[in-house]
Design a protein around this nucleic acid. Structure first.
Lengths: 246, 246
DNA sequence: CAAGAAACATGACAATAGTCATGTTTTATT
DNA sequence: AATAAAACATGACTATTGTCATGTTTCTTG
């Protein structure tokens, strides 16, 4: 729960995506599903844009014009309340889709803000072209349905955790998820590759920064984790899992 | 929007399959989208089932075999934690789809329990037939994408409220939603047609029953609402809206 | 319509998490 | 390497919500 950060608005760099076969594109399931021919066509309609720290991909309330895919880096989806508190609903990773949904339909506006975490690269496509693509490719449409269903389950699981669990359990759940979704092996356990400050974690589980710090300090003392932000390592995943559901 | 006033608490219309266009079915957007011909075909593949209080449509962990549509009544989607606490993630109303999502795909099991609230009638269809239908009907697939997108936004909004708002604000938000989604005019304000006990409300906003009772008592004292369960009436929607975001 | 079961209600107290204030350490920038 | 800015840390106090206990009212059902 933080007040809004101040930003120095820079212009993001936009460029036509290379129709050749840029590295990273094979991490995107939706594109993998298409025939080589359709993929080329779709890539021709997509633009790659890079964003840096402090920029916004779009903000809550902006009109929805594009469908997006994360190509590189992580993007956080944030909503904020009138009194300036904010919460992070989801961290998108390469291959994740956004604005693939209803808001993109009836001329509505973005229900939340999309913010890069560090340097990111995003592919985007006019929503009209996106809809056309879905209508023409039942496989792509099915993939989007599958994807949205997963996101819905995830969001409901998150709601359940927020509704029923204590702060320390919610934080433990977060750490377990991070380990499983963005963890790599490390001599001391599992290293989380997304850079997350205590404040970021606080925003992800609906507590204040102080509370997140205190709980993480306890976890550290109990040898469940080490390090902060850039060097966060999960040392005892089983115990965290246990704590998350106890 | 209930289809008829609830004068007699006993057995409603004993439904026999009217081959033409049975009443109730035109409240289901997904079916409306189909051509008359496709609709007939789909209806031929669907089975109508009735459930009563205390029964389950399916339970958390059961294998996912069917796609479902609510035809009459309300259905609650519930998850519970190991220590027996429950939370209600969503109340489905006529026209709502469930298991239209990913869990239905890779042979996974239900992430939550579906429970009727009173008497309900549900249409269901084998998932294989459902997928086939989606592939054959781009319009239907687009409708499901639209629907899932809305559900996702709703779930994320719910997560935000759980993460950032106080108990009384969450309850106020709930009442506002209820008024807007299932309210009918009443001499004293807006009557909520879904029967919800204080315990139900507590489960929907992640508080204990006692807390829900205390807060509702305060709302009653402040003339924001009247009545309980079956006769819940919202008397001052604007004030509740204000409270929800203050 | 009586009896039992839910639902509603309220008080006393405990636990959890937030707020505010202040200080230290780490990280980023010139 | 110096400096500024984040991030981390901790104490003291407060607010919010949960827990447990107990009693009343309202529905349901035989």
């Amino acid at each position: 729960m933080s007040k809004r950060p101040k930003t120095s608005p820079q212009q993001p760099t936009a460029e036509r995506s290379d129709p050749g076969a840029p590295a990273g594109l094979n991490q995107i399931p939706l594109l993998q599903i298409l025939s080589a021919q359709d993929r080329q066509k779709v890539l021709g309609e997509m633009t790659e844009t890079r964003y840096g720290k402090g920029e916004y991909i779009f903000r809550e309330g902006d009109p929805t014009e594009y469908f997006h895919i994360v190509k590189e880096g992580s993007v956080k989806c944030v909503k904020s309340s009138l009194d300036g508190k904010e919460c992070t609903l989801k961290v998108l990773m390469p291959g994740d889709l956004f604005c693939c949904d209803a808001s993109a339909f009836d001329g509505a506006s973005h229900p939340g803000t999309a913010q890069p975490m560090g340097d990111v690269s995003v592919l985007r496509m006019k929503k009209e072209a996106y809809f056309k693509m879905l209508r023409a490719n039942p496989d792509a449409a099915m993939e989007v349905i599958r994807y949205l269903g997963n996101r819905l389950n995830e969001a409901q699981e998150k709601a359940k955790v927020l509704a029923l669990d204590r702060a320390d359990q919610r934080l433990a759940s977060l750490l377990v998820n991070l380990a499983e979704r963005s963890g790599i092996k490390d001599p001391n356990g599992i290293r989380v590759t997304v850079r997350l400050t205590r404040q970021d974690m606080a925003n992800m589980v609906g507590v204040t920064t102080e509370t997140a710090i205190r709980i993480m300090a306890r976890f550290k003392k109990d040898r469940l984790v080490t390090g902060t932000a850039a060097r966060l390592v999960i040392r005892d995943l089983p115990k965290l899992k246990l704590l998350a559901s106890t």
